[in-house]
Design a protein around this nucleic acid. Structure first.
Length: 519
RNA sequence: GGCCCGUUCGUCUAGGGGUUAGGACGCCAGGUUUUCAUCCUGGUAGCACGGGUUCGAAUCCCGUACGGGCUACCA
């Protein structure tokens, strides 16, 4: 194990969407590239926003996608616990340290007082008033209040927060692995709350302490964190942990496929594709569709997501999980936001299905087959997958486009029958059905030879006969090689379908004739 | 409003002073196929705008526009 340790730190406030998955993927890829450790840490410091089941969802999704964490609440590890709510006691010491060294202070202001300050300053023309060096002495805190009063308040169990004391006039710079140097003026920074009245640390405090304690080497997170990074730098400095500052990489956001703004959870329903890895049943009863349920392969999603904002610098696009890890580099991550392109996702999935072995595919769709009420052997299913896979974009397409392998087709492509079927060929079709029926060894090759010989000998032309047979067997013009299809479906069933459908074709044709006569 | 980040075909992107600006998805056309799909070949389409630096700018600098993020006792 190298000392590269990368954490994915979601809040359990709902299902992890595809953007979160991408962040986790980049975390995973960077760790694996360097033989390091991928860590999952649950940032549940906001008890109000906690959603039951969200943590399990995150872990299950990462497992399904094949990017399971090496350390985390379920995986365990030497740096646990991995839920911040269970680490509450460890943060106090660091907060105290900041207070003692004068880098942080107690603030006793109520929500109303804070609100009052903001509206007061707004009336003076200040758009967004901050709690900072310019305002803190007008507020009720351990900097503005006499020491005795502070002690009194503390002793009387008055509720308080702890705020970071930001010194104005400084320039805070750091190197972002994706964007290079980024600078902020401390004048713009407010005195961030580090410890809430409920005794829980805020994200900023917990994050710094845990990253330090868990020996995190790289912080990869969404761009929305870029502007709070200077606060984090200040925190490391104040704690005397400047030598332990991890490398930062802020990822560009995932954007809606069309229109403005970042991809949101409701875009799935809006645009007709999943934005979550797996199905999620929201407590409010709303159901969010997942890629898994839509018939996507985890490898394909990973490959697709990896390329949304990153590229290997070569023209190779199809990568195994391990190949991605080897090729990955933060330097190749692009800076601009990427639109989510469902067409590209489907293309990746199709590629993965085509290249997957038939038995494996059979295994993946076997549950759907059972659910549809079909009962076939594993061998049959494997052959079926072999025939259908070039036509499938998702796993769902196997059954929707290949149902005639399991049951006699209900819907017949009548249009093609009207166009291709000639009543004068009826006897020929009849003869072909009989010719094929007497084949002893009912193989693709033998069926093909028999049919083609008959067509040749009677000078009929493939176009006049084969579409009729195809629709007779499968009901549709779309499908795998006709003779392979016949072999798999089997002689008796094929014979039955062809005989009964021939009758139906005649009816279709006669109705057509009548209509023409009327017109 | 302020601060910060960004902007190459419709989309994802390569390219970082001299390129016919490359690839992929999509779309279109052709070929292969009894059909559909796969596959193959070809086509379509782009450096946001304005200044500057330079012999030369997609590339460096400045500005503008546009997009995004942050501006909570949310993460």
């Amino acid at each position: 194990m190298s000392d590269i340790r990368v954490r994915f730190a979601p809040s359990p406030t709902g299902p992890l969407n595809i953007g979160g998955i991408r962040t986790a993927l980049y975390d995973y890829l960077l760790a694996k590239k360097h033989g390091g450790t991928f860590i999952l840490r649950i940032e549940d410091t906001d008890q109000k926003r906690f959603v039951e089941g969200a943590e399990d969802y995150v872990i299950d999704a990462l497992h399904w996608l094949g990017i399971a964490p090496d350390e985390g609440p379920r995986a365990g590890g030497d740096y646990g616990p991995y839920r911040q709510s269970e680490r509450k006691s460890t943060y106090g010491e660091y907060v105290q340290k900041l207070i003692n060294s004068g880098h942080a202070y107690y603030a006793f202001d109520s929500h109303e007082e804070l609100e009052g300050m903001r509206t007061r300053l707004e009336r003076q023309g200040i758009q967004r008033a901050k709690y900072d060096a310019s305002t803190r002495m007008d507020m009720r805190n351990s900097l503005s209040l006499p020491e005795s009063e502070v002690k009194e308040l503390l002793d009387s169990n008055a509720s308080y927060t702890v705020r970071l004391k930001v010194t104005p006039g400084e320039t805070i710079s750091f190197v972002d692995e994706i964007r290079d140097k980024v600078s902020f003026s401390s004048d713009e920074l407010d005195d961030k709350i580090l410890l809430k009245t409920d005794g829980m640390p805020t994200y900023h405090m917990a994050n710094i302490v845990d990253d330090y304690l868990m020996k995190i080497s790289h912080v990869i997170r969404g761009e929305e964190w870029l502007s709070s990074t200077p606060h984090h730098i200040l925190l490391y400095r104040a704690l005397g942990l400047e030598d332990h500052i991890p490398k930062f990489a802020h990822l560009p956001l995932l954007l809606k496929p069309v229109g403005k703004g970042k991809l949101s959870k409701r875009d799935g329903a809006k645009f007709g594709f999943p934005v979550f890895p797996m199905e999620w049943n929201n407590p409010d009863g709303e159901v969010y569709e997942g890629f898994k349920e839509a018939g996507f392969l985890p490898e394909a999603i990973i490959n697709f997501l990896a390329f949304l904002g990153w590229n290997p610098g070569t023209e190779q696009e199809i990568f195994t999980n391990a190949g991605l890890a080897e090729a990955f580099s933060l330097k190749q991550v692009s800076k601009g936001g990427a639109r989510f392109d469902f067409d590209k996702a489907k293309w990746f999935n199709q590629q993965y299905i085509i290249h997957m072995n038939d038995a494996k595919l059979a295994e993946l769709i076997s549950q759907d087959v059972v659910d549809a009420g079909y009962d076939v052997s594993q061998e049959y299913l494997t052959k079926f997958c072999g025939l259908m896979k070039e036509r499938a974009v998702t796993l769902k397409d196997f059954l929707s486009a290949g149902s005639f392998f399991f049951q006699k087709p209900e819907i017949i492509d009548e249009k093609t029958i009207r166009k291709k079927f000639k009543l004068e060929n009826e006897n020929h079709i009849q003869s072909i059905i009989e010719t094929v029926f007497v084949i002893e060894d009912y193989t693709t090759q033998n069926i093909e030879t028999a049919v083609k010989n008959y067509i040749g000998e009677n000078e009929l032309g493939f176009g006049a006969i084969l579409p009729i047979l195809r629709i007779g067997v499968s009901g549709t013009m779309k499908g795998p090689d006709l003779f392979s299809t016949m072999e798999l479906i089997g002689k008796a069933e094929v014979d039955e379908r062809l005989r009964s459908n021939l009758v139906r074709f005649k009816e279709i044709k006669l109705i057509q004739k009548e209509n023409q006569a009327d017109a």
